[in-house]
């Protein structure tokens, strides 16, 4: 029962503050180790959480990871796989690796926001910034090179805002 100690201390504080808590929820701060958002309000009992872990499940309605790589790993990699290799079963999830459809940002932005066939629309769980960042991430990794260089085009949050319904 040792891992409980910190929780009990925090709990004691929470009792006095209870009426305040619901109205004035403390803001999350992964950097200082303060655990405040949904799912992360308590200390960890069974494993040592690293900084990246604290962004997981931080908001029940959306993803809070920041940066293209973190967003990719937290949602896209589930179907397109960690190396963008895609997957095949009775149907398939297309590979993003070496995918020429990613040359221009408009297509992936549209598909991420609105979905396409088996791919669900992710516009409601990702911000404009997250969509733009992950679009640039997949267009500049897995053998794709469409962001940097003379002909490179980087997606912007404004591009994403423009395709939202």
């Amino acid at each position: 029962m040792k891992p409980l100690s910190l929780t009990i201390i925090l709990s004691g504080l929470a009792v006095a503050a209870l009426p305040l808590v619901a109205q004035d929820r403390p803001k999350p701060d992964a950097a200082t180790g303060e655990i405040a958002r949904s799912g992360q309000r308590e200390d960890f009992r069974t494993f040592e959480a690293e900084d990246g872990d604290l962004a997981y499940f931080a908001d029940a309605a959306r993803l809070t990871q920041e940066g293209g790589e973190a967003v990719y790993e937290a949602v896209c990699a589930g179907c397109h796989m960690p190396e963008g290799e895609g997957a095949v079963g009775a149907g398939m999830y297309p590979a993003l690796a070496g995918n020429e459809m990613l040359e221009f940002p408009e297509y992936p932005i549209y598909v991420i926001v609105h979905g396409q066939k088996a791919m669900p629309p992710l516009g409601s769980i990702l911000s404009d910034e997250q969509v733009a960042e992950v679009t640039n991430y997949i267009r500049s990794h897995f053998g794709n090179d469409y962001v940097e260089g003379e002909d490179g085009i980087a997606a912007t949050p404004e591009d994403v805002a423009g395709v939202r319904p």
Binding site: G39, L63, V75, C76, A77, C79, L122, I125
Partner: peptide, 8 residues
């Protein structure tokens, strides 16, 4: 959103 993260 939670299921997407577990899925990944």
């Amino acid at each position: 959103a939670t299921a997407y993260q577990f899925n990944a």
